[in-house]
Amino acid sequence: MKKTSIIGLIIIAISIGVIISIYADTSTYGNFSEAQEKQSELVVVSHLNKRKKFTYDPHKDANYFAFYAIDNKGKECQVIFNGTKPQDFEKSEQLVITGKMSGENFYASRILMKCPSKYNKDQVEIKANGSSAVKSGI
């Protein structure tokens, strides 16, 4: 075999190895119960339990944020995030949390917030010449 053919095969083998390692590292979705069973990193779709207070005191520890979330199956769990509280966290409709379960707590490494839209698609108020009308379906 020529040297160029051998080098080409080595480059192809390395490329395949890189692609496999990238896809093997992808996280899977689940809930808090599955996270407790698997004890591995999992992505949990949940929503914030607004009835319970969250813990964040930047003067005491700016990298400690704890709150309660409820997954899609209805199980509630305390989530601990070693980072600052995201801006407008209370306004989020849905949370996508990546992390691991340890004991009874879920330790998050990433938090993605799904916030409500600023605009209401169903009704927009239009004012013309001092009068107002509501136009639906925009």
Rank of each mutant, 00 (worst) to 15 (best):
S27A: 12
S27V: 14
S27N: 14
Y29C: 00
Y29G: 01
Y29A: 05
G30F: 08
G30L: 10
G30K: 03
N31E: 09
N31L: 08
F32Y: 05
F32I: 05
S33Y: 11
S33I: 12
S33R: 09
S33T: 13
E34A: 12
Q36W: 01
Q36H: 09
Q36I: 04
K38H: 06
K38W: 07
Q39V: 03
Q39T: 04
S40E: 15
S40A: 12
E41K: 13
L42N: 05
L42V: 11
V43Q: 08
V44K: 03
V44H: 02
V45E: 07
V45C: 00
V45W: 00
H47N: 05
N49G: 06
N49R: 12
N49D: 15
R51S: 10
K52Y: 11
K52G: 01
K52R: 13
K52W: 06
K52T: 15
K53F: 14
K53M: 15
K53E: 15
K53N: 15
K53Q: 15
F54C: 06
F54K: 02
T55G: 01
T55F: 12
Y56P: 00
D57M: 10
P58N: 06
P58H: 08
P58S: 08
K60C: 01
D61Y: 02
Y64R: 08
Y64T: 08
F65Q: 04
F65N: 14
A66P: 00
A66I: 01
A66V: 02
A66Q: 10
F67K: 08
Y68I: 11
A69N: 03
A69S: 05
I70N: 05
I70R: 07
D71Q: 07
K73T: 13
K73S: 14
G74D: 10
K75W: 07
E76F: 01
C77F: 05
C77E: 14
Q78G: 04
I80P: 00
N82P: 01
G83L: 00
T84R: 13
T84Q: 13
P86E: 10
P86W: 06
P86K: 06
Q87E: 11
Q87A: 09
D88P: 00
K91Q: 14
K91L: 13
S92V: 02
E93R: 06
Q94K: 13
Q94A: 03
